[in-house]
Design a protein around this nucleic acid. Structure first.
Lengths: 151, 151
DNA sequence: GTGTTTTGGTTCGATATCGCACCATTTAGT
DNA sequence: ACTAAATGGTGCGATATCGAACCAAAACAC
C-alpha cells in the first residue's frame, strides 16, 4: 500500500495525519485515569511557552475550537493540574495557571514517554529530522495564516 | 509563541498535530451533511489504493482502531457511498466496494478543495514540499513499524 | 455617551472516537 | 483431528470533539 499522492501538499497532510495518530496513541497508552494527549499538550504548553495563558490563546496554539479547549481545561482543573483565575486585564477573560500537581504530571509523563523517544532516536537519524523541520514549520505557519484569512 | 522544542522528534509530532488539525478543518468546511474527513479519506483510499479492501486494512492504513473504522464505514454505507460484501476468502471478513455515488462524492470533494490547494501552491514552493516528503514518509514508516512491535 | 459590533468564554446537543467485551472463523500446536 | 490461540468484525458505554446559540465585557462607531 504505497499510497502514492499526485500532489506533495496532499501527501504532507496525509503523512501529518498518520504521524499525529500514531503519536497520540503512543502518548495516551502511557497516561492513566482519563488523561488524554490534549491534556498533556496544554500542560506542556503552559510550562514551556507561557504559564497564565488565556483559554483562547491555548485554543489558537493547538488550532482547536474554543469549546474544545473549555472542555479540556475543565478536565485539567478537575485533576487539579491547573487553576483558572480571572484575567486582571479583561473581565471577560481568564488565565490558566499550572499547579504543582500539573508540573508533576508533566514530568511524570515525560519520563513515561522517554523510552519511546530514545527508541525513535535509535532508529532515525536525528539530523534528518532537524533538516526537514524548518520547512515543515514554515508550511505549518503558512497554512495557519491561510486559515486565519479564510473566515 | 515560538514553541521551541528541545527534541526534533517531539517537534515533528507537534507540527504533524497542527497540520493535521488545520487540514481536517479545511476539508470538513467543504463537506456537507454529516460528512467528515474520515469519510473522504476512506473513499479516497478505496479509489486510489485498492477498491474492495477489508475494514481492517482500512483501519491499519489510517492507524485508527477497528471500532472507529466500523463506525466510519457504517456512515459511508448509509450515504450509499460504499457497499459491504462478504469476503470470499475469509468468512469472518468483508470487502468494501465503492459505488458510483461514492466516486462522485470523491470527485466533488476534490473539486471543492481544489482552490485551497491552488492557494497553497501559490504560497509555498512545491519543490520544498517534495524535498522533505521522503524523510517525512520514512519517519512515518519507522514509527508505524515501532507501533506494530509494541503490542 | 449611546448603540453597534467584536471578542472571550460557556452551555447544550449531536455525533465521532475508542477501549472493552464478545462472537465467529481461521490458524497453530501437538 | 482437537484444543488453544489468534484474527476480523460488531455492540456497547464512556467521553472527546465541535458547531450553534448564547451571555457578558470590551472596542468601535458617530
Amino acid at each position: 500500500m504505497p499510497e502514492i499522492h499526485p500532489d506533495p501538499f496532499v501527501a504532507l497532510f496525509f503523512e501529518a495525519g498518520i504521524i499525529n495518530q500514531i503519536g497520540t496513541t503512543f502518548l495516551e497508552k502511557r497516561l492513566s485515569d482519563g488523561l488524554l494527549a490534549s491534556h498533556f499538550g496544554v500542560v506542556n504548553h503552559l510550562m514551556r511557552v507561557r504559564d497564565g495563558a488565556t483559554p483562547l490563546e491555548l485554543a489558537r496554539a493547538f488550532q482547536v475550537p474554543k469549546t474544545t479547549m473549555t472542555h479540556t481545561l475543565a478536565g485539567l482543573e478537575k485533576h487539579g493540574f491547573v487553576q483558572m483565575r480571572p484575567n486582571p486585564d479583561d473581565k471577560r477573560s481568564k488565565q490558566v495557571w499550572l499547579t504543582d500537581a500539573g508540573r508533576a504530571f508533566r514530568d511524570e509523563t515525560l519520563a513515561a514517554v522517554g523510552p519511546i523517544f530514545a527508541e525513535i532516536a535509535r532508529r532515525f537519524d536525528r539530523k534528518d529530522a532537524e533538516d526537514i523541520l524548518p520547512t515543515l514549520t514554515a508550511f505549518r505557519q503558512m497554512i495557519d495564516q491561510l486559515r486565519d484569512e479564510m473566515d
